[in-house]
Design a protein around this nucleic acid. Structure first.
Lengths: 219, 219
DNA sequence: TTGACAACATACTCGATAGTATGTTCAACT
DNA sequence: AGTTGAACATACTATCGAGTATGTTGTCAA
């Protein structure tokens, strides 16, 4: 039966994906805590109560694992904001919504986003550990495409007169520094209610749009 | 002669300090480019056309060198802003001046500040490479004291009604993210005039005070 | 039921690097 | 003029970790 065959096939696929995701989560936490270079794959394996053999069964190298974490982190970002780019709404409202979605995503997937940050740094300094230039270039494009989304949203809002800035590069960098801040300084505490995180995210967004010259208060 | 004796003594001291500074500058550049863990002391030595022996003559360990770079970076920051804390001036002007001084310092000493950032991360995650808890605690205090300076300036400006924020911790973190941004995204280009960097710094400061709810434009 | 393969675990190799031990030079003091 | 010690350079060791080679187990298909 085709259905049964596909079912089996997908279950195995799914298991593989689940296994890779479990590895990635462990890796993201280790990379976040100690940095890429200082993290050993034995540490990653230990974190998920496993062994290095398992990791090398799914990934060809440490760098490949790192790149997969990077890519997954970027995908999480895209999935968070892309739905908002479709809907028709006032530019300033879209800006607020996109910023908010990004911050929420960043907080939820903190470890992955930290790895993304490390990857961006490596790209910037040309110290990528891999020889896999194809993957590397692809990730750079991912990052640029994501940044481009924000550029467009910013320019729309500026054209609508809701915000203002002199140099879009500096403005965009500053906004990213601001809304990515939680990656660096946020530390989740036990028993922290969901609405506390919401308030935190709202405050980050407020500062980000203020930075851009937005005058009205939050609606 | 006491004078000659002291002169000799001081000259040797001074030479030692110069040598240490040269090592630190090489180390800061390497740490910035590859990160602490990925940087070998042979690389640092090669960067200053020297050998590992020289480094170990001045420092007991890689971690000790790192900590000295960290401390030196923080000192540069203090020296940049502390004179401004003395003078009597309107809170909002002091805020602007301090932010501007910080950004200028950050751009000039980019590599050192990047190391400071790595150090702060290590403190945060408890992954400091050294056993030297004394040094470690001292550096944490340095960082806190520096942050405290900004806290005071912010609160004064808020009391004067020039700015506004809900949560000082989040606001301060956001401001730091913004004014420390150049550490991450600024890349000096050859032939870049001094006034271009000034303009860049001004724009960072503008975004930072806007973030804090400042309404007036830059004077 | 068996064999074939995926999904691991275990046991190794080998290069890189932090740290050390020792050698060399040069300047100051005696 | 010789001795000493600071400021290095050179040569080595010891460890750690990425990558590999091989062993083990459960599962599914025929």
């Amino acid at each position: 039966m085709a259905t049964a065959a596909r079912s089996t096939k997908y279950r195995r696929q799914s298991d593989t994906e689940l296994s890779r995701m479990e590895i990635m989560e462990g890796a993201a936490l280790c990379f976040e805590a100690r940095g890429y270079a200082a993290t050993s794959l034995d540490e990653v394996a230990a974190r998920i109560s496993s062994t290095k053999g398992r990791i090398y069964h799914h990934y060809g190298s440490k760098a490949e694992l790192f790149l997969d974490v990077y890519r997954t982190g970027m995908m999480m970002n895209f999935q968070a904001i892309e739905p908002l780019l479709e809907h028709d709404m006032p530019p300033i409202e879209r800006l607020k919504a996109v910023l908010k979605a990004h911050v929420r995503c960043v907080i939820r997937t903190k470890a992955f986003q930290n790895v993304v940050g490390q990857g961006v740094d490596m790209l910037r300094h040309g110290t990528m550990p891999a020889n896999e230039h194809a993957e590397l270039a692809q990730l750079a494009e991912l990052r640029d495409a994501y940044s481009e989304h924000f550029s467009k949203v910013l320019e729309d809002a500026k054209a609508a007169g809701a915000i203002d800035y002199t140099n879009i590069k500096i403005a965009l960098n500053s906004v990213f520094m601001c809304i990515n801040g939680p990656i660096v300084w946020f530390t989740p505490r036990k028993g922290q209610a969901e609405h506390e995180i919401e308030a935190l995210a709202d405050e980050c967004v407020l500062y980000a749009i203020r930075l851009l010259g937005y005058r009205g208060e939050m609606s």
